[in-house]
Amino acid sequence: MAALAAADRVAFGLLRDTVEVSDSLLSRHILTLERAGYVEVVKGYEGKRPRTWLSLTDEGRAAFERYQRTLRALIDTTSPVQHPD
């Protein structure tokens, strides 16, 4: 989600290489996110080569922003652990 949030759309191969996972693992995750309405998948051609582009939907972008806010709130309210000397 973070990699997709940084761009309007990302080619499947670039995302796979960025997150360093196999095609099959990324495909499974993308399918789950697509079913949730968070990711849009567009298949097409670049020249004669088939390509798959991925982008966050408005709902996906909003969900990711909520997730980031939640993490920031947790970080901001968590006190560092004090270790005895």
Rank of each mutant, 00 (worst) to 15 (best):
V39Y: 07
S22H: 09
A6D: 06
I30A: 01
T70I: 08
W53Y: 15
L14S: 07
G13R: 09
P50T: 01
L31M: 04
E65M: 05
Y67A: 06
T32M: 11
K48Y: 03
T32C: 03
V10N: 04
R69W: 00
G37M: 10
W53E: 15
G60P: 07
L54Q: 01
L74H: 09
L71A: 10
L26V: 02
Q68M: 10
L56H: 10
S24D: 11
T32W: 03
R51W: 03
A7D: 11
S24P: 01
V42T: 14
A73C: 08
A5M: 08
L15T: 06
Y45M: 11
A73S: 12
S24M: 09
T70R: 11
R28D: 11
G13I: 02
L56G: 12
E40H: 00
D8W: 06
V42R: 04
E34K: 06
E65F: 02
T52I: 12
P80Y: 09
L4P: 12
Y38E: 15
L56W: 08
H29V: 13
T78A: 10
K48M: 01
D58I: 05
R66N: 10
P80W: 09
T78Q: 10
V81H: 05
E65Y: 02
L14F: 03
Q68C: 08
L33W: 13
T70Q: 14
D23F: 07
E65W: 01
T77W: 01
Y38H: 15
A73Y: 10
R72K: 12
V21C: 01
F12C: 02
V42F: 01
I75C: 02
D76M: 08
E59S: 14
L25Q: 04
H83G: 06
R16C: 04
A11T: 01
S27Y: 00
G44C: 02
A2K: 11
L74S: 05
L33C: 04
G13Y: 02
L25H: 09
D17I: 01
V21E: 03
H83L: 11
V10A: 06
